[in-house]
Write a protein that binds this DNA or RNA. Structure first.
Lengths: 239, 239
DNA sequence: CGTTATGTTGATTCAGATCAAGAGCGGTGG
DNA sequence: CCACCGCTCTTGATCTGAATCAACATAACG
């Protein structure tokens, strides 16, 4: 059930079997499911447990008064969607399902017990939230200082690497994002996403049909995006 | 020495005198100073201690190959500049001094001991990093979906609140950022910052002379920015 | 005091938004 | 089973916010 999560942890640090057992036991035994488009967590709520994605894709987003939306994260299997709520108490953004998803929940009380009895695990959970902010920083760089094609190419590079860690992609993978959602993530209009996508496709960097992406030339895609995976902190995998 | 830091913590949670003592003891006894413009931490380095701002302003930034710069955070007294390096190991960005600064350092080994012996303190440190990412999320929203004047006004609102917590501002305060640096923070050009600043000044929302800002109409500034401080998680202070 | 950073202004260009309309398609209910 | 409705994708035309380029003023500074 937690394979993708363990893969993600083990990409960065050693996890002994005791710790695996403690983590596994901390989760509620029965997974939950949500349909595409539904909200797992709403802005302003005060969750009493945190949620880990087992399958499917979710997104953090904020809605502005004028109806505009900004997506601040896309989560894949193995990612926590709302670990911050363990300490931040009130959700300052919502989390929605981009596809049908199944998730596992951990009561905050159990997380607290982990930080008290298993400091190393506590640090690993802390690490997961730091990784999220590292990714967020890279998004800021993309929004502020990269052109639309670079930014979009960068996003795809990131998804390739993250999905590879989750064991879900090599150079071909499903990405259940509409062009509108992609625009909301990259801070661009859907129309411009459409044209930028065409530009990159015409450079034969990847194909994107339906929800399926196939990377045709990983090296050229990386250099088009000026992608440097340092910020993903894959310590145990040589760059 | 650590007043601003304690104020920041106590804005969100209770800290007993034991914990205060433990924290104080964890820091190296003698503060360091850096001149404006110098780097406290460089990209690619592996710090063995983390740094807390005592006085002055610092910034996280990334330099791109083409010379563009993106600032991803501005830190004020009481903020950690590189707490993530405790767990992320390799710095994926640099930290520079925006003004002359004094800082206190904590060896990572001491932080580790805190997470092992004082889980509540460990969670408070974790909390600090979550607050950083919450702020970062708001920056993403600003860059993606707010207009330049809104974004800039929002930034000023944020600084007012954060400096107030640090005990350094009411509605008048120093902000040692050049227009170029502001541009690098908001993802705009210096020229456009200049014009946007003039626009907001002409609305009599604030004055900005030299490095001194004075907010003239806090309510109108907030509504101009559509500023909602929820993301700053001032749990113990009623909104 | 020259010298270098910073702020200001104007002219021009350009990336990306907005507006509008049609095409494909997938689901739903009569 | 098919007509219809609502998304999503696509395309073209136009507009605009912000970048860029260039010059100069002013302030800070060794």
């Amino acid at each position: 059930m937690l394979e993708a999560f363990f893969r993600k942890l083990e990409q960065r640090d050693v996890l002994n079997s005791d710790e695996r057992a403690v983590l596994t036991a901390a989760f509620d035994p029965v997974p939950k499911s949500y349909p595409a488009g539904s909200d797992l967590v709403t802005e302003g709520s005060r969750p009493s447990s945190s949620t880990l994605v087992l399958s499917g894709f979710t997104t953090r987003y904020r809605l502005l008064e004028d109806g505009k939306r900004q997506i601040t994260a896309v989560h894949v299997p193995g990612d926590f969607v709302d670990l911050p709520s363990f300490l931040l108490k009130v959700m300052d953004h919502a989390v929605g399902a981009l596809s049908p998803v199944t998730v596992a929940t951990v009561p905050h009380a159990n997380l607290r017990r982990i930080t008290e009895g298993y400091p190393h695990l506590g640090r690993m959970l802390w690490f997961m939230t730091l990784l999220d902010s590292s990714i967020l920083r890279e998004w800021v760089v993309g929004m502020g200082r990269r052109t639309a094609p670079e930014h979009l190419a960068h996003f795809i590079c990131e998804m390739v690497v993250r999905l590879r860690i989750a064991g879900l992609a090599d150079l071909s993978f499903d990405l259940p994002l509409t062009q509108m959602e992609l625009g909301d993530a990259l801070g661009l209009s859907a129309v411009h996403i459409n044209r930028t996508l065409q530009e990159l496709r015409s450079e034969h960097l990847f194909t994107w049909e339906g929800q399926r992406i196939e990377v045709l030339d990983w090296d050229r895609l990386k250099s088009r995006a000026r992608f440097d995976p340092l910020y993903l902190h894959l310590e145990r995998e040589p760059r």
